[in-house]
Simulated assay, not measured.
Amino acid sequence: MSDELDRELRVATRLAEWASEVIRRPRGATADPVREKASPADIVTDMDEEIETYVRSLLRGKFPAYGIEGEEYGVHRGEPDAPHWVIDPIDGTTNYAHGIGWCSFSLGLAAPDGTPLLGVVADPWRHEVYTAVRGGGAYLNGTPTRAADHTTLTGHVFLTEWAAHAHWPGMDALLAELSARHCTVRVMGSTALSLAQVAAGRASATAIGEFHPVDSLPALLVATEAGAVALPQRPVYDEPLLIAAPGVAAEATELWRRLVLREG
């Protein structure tokens, strides 16, 4: 790992630990006010904005040439050949706002062409921080982590997420086929954490209907550095993404292409 990448990872990890503490902060009798963004199912709280404001400020101070894209405050353009950060201060705001302990802080660094270079995902409620750098493996709380060695989807967990509040094309057909195979599906409410569970070996696969770098790129890198297989290998914005443990990748890919991508 280069000295600069090591510095970036240390900064990102410290920010993840700080954000986890802030998210766990007792909320008292008055919860954060919830405000709508694009729809009643797309919400933001003061905590989302507080975390992103601090993270953006710190990153701009330490890496002034870099760009930044955040969930709440959009894009700050850096120098043309510089990498850019992607920030989701609370991925799973609906869970957070309703007192459900399943949300995450997500921070990643991407090359100018979008290639993920570094990814950090923090689970405040389980005191877990996933980290990865490109080509350097994946870690959970500093210990190497690997995708599961399952060889079938049957009997294991498959995670997915809504596209905002709605089913995405092919989702119902995929869920029906997984049910027929006795594969248990869960919709947990945080894209970053759902992808990270494949890296931890807890879920055999995770599928999302729309890839957005802000909430998916860091966890995508963590999962693939843990040995998981991504389809497609280079995800496209707003297009579906499948992540699968290597032993179930062929089975999951066949279902994905037939039911979601409608190939063949």
Rank of each mutant, 00 (worst) to 15 (best):
G135W: 06
E49R: 15
I100P: 03
R77M: 09
L117R: 12
A180R: 15
A173N: 13
L174G: 13
K37H: 03
A147I: 05
C103H: 11
D46G: 08
A200E: 12
A245Q: 06
E49T: 13
L9H: 02
A203H: 09
T206Q: 02
A111V: 01
R186H: 10
W18Q: 11
G247R: 06
T191Q: 08
R234P: 00
D215W: 03
H165S: 15
T206P: 00
N95L: 06
E161S: 06
V157D: 10
G201D: 01
A148M: 09
H182W: 12
G201C: 04
E225H: 03
R181E: 11
G92V: 01
Y237E: 09
G137Q: 03
R14V: 08
H212Y: 13
T93P: 09
V260L: 05
G114H: 02
I51T: 08
L107I: 13
H98N: 13
P80T: 04
D42P: 00
V11M: 07
P40N: 08
R146P: 00
T131H: 01
L231P: 00
F211P: 00
G108H: 09
E263T: 13
W18D: 11
P169A: 12
D3Y: 09
S39Y: 11
H182V: 03
R10W: 04
T154C: 07
L117Q: 11
G136T: 01
R35S: 13
C183N: 10
Y54S: 02
Y130A: 04
I87A: 05
E69V: 15
V133N: 04
V133E: 07
V260R: 10
D149G: 11
S190E: 11
H165A: 15
L178M: 11
R146A: 12
H212T: 06
I68Q: 09
T13S: 03
S190K: 11
D81N: 13
L159I: 03
D46E: 15
T53V: 08
T224V: 15
N95E: 05
D238A: 14
Y139K: 03
A147G: 01
R35T: 09
G136M: 07
G74E: 06
W85G: 09
L241S: 02
R35H: 12
A147C: 06
W256V: 11
Y66C: 05
T131V: 03
A166S: 14
D149R: 09
T206W: 00
V133H: 04
Y66K: 01
A245S: 15
T152H: 12
A226I: 00
R77W: 12
T13A: 04
A147H: 03
S57E: 15
V222E: 06
Y96G: 03
P246H: 07
E49S: 12
M188V: 06
G189E: 08
E161V: 06
F63G: 00
G135K: 07
G67K: 10
A163F: 14
H165R: 14
T191I: 14
R24L: 15
V222I: 14
I90Y: 05
R181F: 12
E251I: 03
E263N: 02
G28V: 03
P112S: 05
G136E: 11
D3L: 15
I100D: 10
P40E: 08
D81V: 08
T143P: 00
A41I: 01
A180F: 12
E254D: 14
A223T: 01
P232S: 06
V22L: 11
A19R: 02
T143V: 13
A12H: 08
